[in-house]
Amino acid sequence: MLYLELLVQGLIYGCMYAIIAVGLTLVYGLLRILHVAHAGLFTLGAYLGLILTNATGSLFLAMVLSGTTVGLVGMAIYRFCYKPILHKPPYVALIASIGLFIAMEEIFRLLFGPYGLTYTKVPLQQTVHFFNMNLRAVDLVIVFGSISMLGVLSWLAQKTRLGIAWRATVDDPQMAESFGVSVQKVRYLNFFIGSALAAMAGIFVSLLSNMAEPTMGGVPSYKALAIIVLGGLGNVGGTLIASIILGIVEAFGTIYVGDFLDRDAIAFAFLIIILMLRPQGLFSRK
């Protein structure tokens, strides 16, 4: 029974990691940038979702509005921050992105206060019985919400003209461009979708802990970096599997090695071990 509960806990965290990491891996696949500021968008999404839910009383409306706004902010970040430095060595974009993230965290702290905000009435707190386990409705929403969002994403990528253009650009930007694909449009779209997903993840986390705070982006973001590296940078399928694996490893790790490593350290220990064994990540296309 304990195993099953740990597995379900791992799955919930894994789904959350997956929707954060997918945006990150999309950006990496397209631009070869480690987009640390993605975590800032995650926090922004959580704040907007929480404030809008409190204001309108509808979680769904808040998610839609928050996702759209954060998506647009993500596009602005690409336009004003990354586009001008794409031709520079990779550490330039990485450091710029870290700087941007730190600045964003501070702006949230100054705007919304250092102690975080809470929901006036927390949605989805009903208890649901599921295979002898007591789960909260929010747990189920996270798992099924994430899976359906990723399902839609995969349908977009496989079946639509847009998705085909997007995959072509990831594979070979120059070839795609000479076949008439607008690389710029693809990149904007990419940032929009990735950032909107990060906002969803942010709202999920704020629902789990009934809180949105300035520093909430920190640890999940660094973990998301670990996940996309594990998944073989830029590989969407690998990223999803790596997210779930990491969620489960953490859930079991906190029980069995929690005495000498905390949750984050377990994640990174796992990352380092895997990378030393397979430097190209768990799932690499090469």
Partner: peptide
């Protein structure tokens, strides 16, 4: 980038 993440 892999090294950056590993050292992190």
């Amino acid at each position: 980038d892999f090294l950056a993440i590993t050292t992190m």
